[in-house]
Amino acid sequence: MDLVSVIGVTIGFAALIGGNFLEGGSIATLLNGPAAIIVFGGTLGAAVLQTPREGIRRALSMFPWIVLPPKCSLSNGIAQVVSWSQTARKEGLLGLENASERENDSFDRKALQLLVDGSDTEVIRHVLETDLAVNEQRDVEAAQFYESMGGYAPTIGIIGAVMGLIHVMQHLADPSELGPGIAVAFVATIYGVAAANLLLLPIASRLRACIKEQSLYRELTIEGICAIADGENPKAIEMKLSGYLR
């Protein structure tokens, strides 16, 4: 579990709620059902409208990456590729068939299968780079679902505030209701701005970072697989791939 993400969200909302208390406010002043429905419902509806069904499904499946990101250790990836190259050097490319069957990652399994099938290096590179580009584009579009929600939320919050003020204007004859009514109206703005900047936009950025890390890991795999196909020495492959380490 990535505790940094949990800590970040906790600090953000703790600062918001703590600041409210220091100003003399209470939790009750930040709770408003109609404002929540307008902001969160409107934001979700707008994002769903612009996103294809497959993009929504992928966005939801990627949500756990915030605290459980894909394991993409570059050092482990290098060690794995070197192990494959050693097997290929001792047993030939057909010796990687068992490794292919045991591999859980679909990308690595495809790469090994291409090797076992004796595909040309250029064919292997073209197939894997195409697969990488398609998957990366799909994941980026899924991350944009949360980014679009972060863009809509503040505007929907303003709409909620205006709707609340319209309701307040209907009670101008009773000054005692103006103050509390205006305060409640602006809760919608708080919801929109806070949701965008403390949750939705950070989620989108976090997912983009995971996608970038995963793509780098797969680029490393492509280079390693192509080097194995070219019959390079395991030590030379390790030195080549060490350039990916930061």
Rank of each mutant, 00 (worst) to 15 (best):
V116T: 01
T155M: 10
S100G: 04
I159T: 01
A188M: 08
D174C: 15
L200D: 04
V168H: 07
L115E: 00
S100A: 05
R89T: 03
M163Y: 10
V184K: 14
E91R: 12
A185M: 06
L115D: 01
L207H: 02
V187S: 10
D174I: 15
R125A: 13
P154A: 05
D120V: 04
R102S: 10
L207M: 09
I158A: 11
G192F: 06
F145H: 02
E141L: 13
V193F: 13
A153E: 00
E97C: 02
T155W: 02
L114R: 00
G118R: 00
T155V: 03
T130P: 08
G118L: 02
Q170H: 14
A99R: 12
N98Q: 11
N135G: 09
H126S: 13
G118W: 02
E147L: 13
Q170M: 08
Q137Y: 15
H171S: 11
P202I: 04
F107G: 01
L199P: 03
S176H: 13
E136G: 13
L115I: 00
E136K: 11
V193C: 04
P202T: 03
E177D: 12
A185S: 02
D120M: 15
M149P: 09
E177L: 15
D131K: 13
A143W: 09
L199K: 09
V127F: 09
P175R: 10
M169N: 06
T121P: 15
A196E: 09
G192C: 12
Y191D: 08
S176Q: 13
M163Q: 11
I159L: 04
A195T: 07
